[in-house]
């Protein structure tokens, strides 16, 4: 039973854009994130982004597992089991906070948090980065990256990334 309110820095779930040392970090809010699972989901959604693919469209799918994708800015779908498509669907728009990371040092920064290389492809974009379970993929440009961080860990993940960035 301890009052630690002052021990932990307050946050309100918003983060101002961060620019330093060749790194830009900002939150972005996709309109919709949908978890879709199913036995043949990867063939339903060909072109799901893997590592180190670059997502360029506004609407795309992330390959998470052999039977799961995260659809970003897809059509609205009813939650639950879709018998016809054999798909389990859940709206997860608020489950992940999304960060856009870019700049010439972005990859360097990421290499602080995981054994990561553009030469080492991996089918799933789900990774452990600085101890956080995130979805990490390239977005928009050669040196652009996007991270989906579990909502409740967005604050420490942001702190970790920015503290590391100023030390680059």
């Amino acid at each position: 039973m301890r009052d630690d309110r002052h021990r932990w820095a307050a946050h309100d779930g918003r983060w101002p854009r961060f620019d330093a040392q060749g790194i830009s970090l900002a939150t972005t809010e996709p309109e919709r994130q949908t978890l879709i699972s199913g036995p043949s989901i990867l063939s339903h959604y060909p072109g799901a982004i893997e590592w180190p693919d670059i997502a360029t469209d506004d609407s795309y799918s992330l390959c998470l597992r052999r039977d799961r994708i995260l659809r970003v800015n897809g059509l609205e779908m009813p939650d639950g089991w879709n018998q016809e498509q054999e798909q389990a669907v859940s709206d997860a728009s608020d489950a992940y906070t999304v960060f856009d990371l870019s700049g010439p040092k972005a990859l360097d920064l990421l290499k602080h948090g995981a054994e990561l290389s553009l030469q080492k492809p991996s089918r799933s974009v789900a990774r452990n980065l600085f101890g956080f379970g995130v979805f990490l993929y390239r977005y928009g440009a050669e040196d652009g990256y996007r991270l989906h961080v579990p909502r409740a860990q967005a604050h420490p993940a942001w702190q970790t990334l920015t503290r590391q960035a100023v030390r680059l």
């Binding site: 052999r66 995981a114 054994e115 080492k120 492809p121 991996s122 089918r123 799933s124 990774r127 452990n128």
Partner: peptide, 15 residues
């Protein structure tokens, strides 16, 4: 260690 996930390929043992 590096463990080969049959789906993802080699990843850090922490995962």
């Amino acid at each position: 260690q590096l463990f080969p996930c049959p789906f993802c390929g080699p990843r850090d043992e922490h995962e």
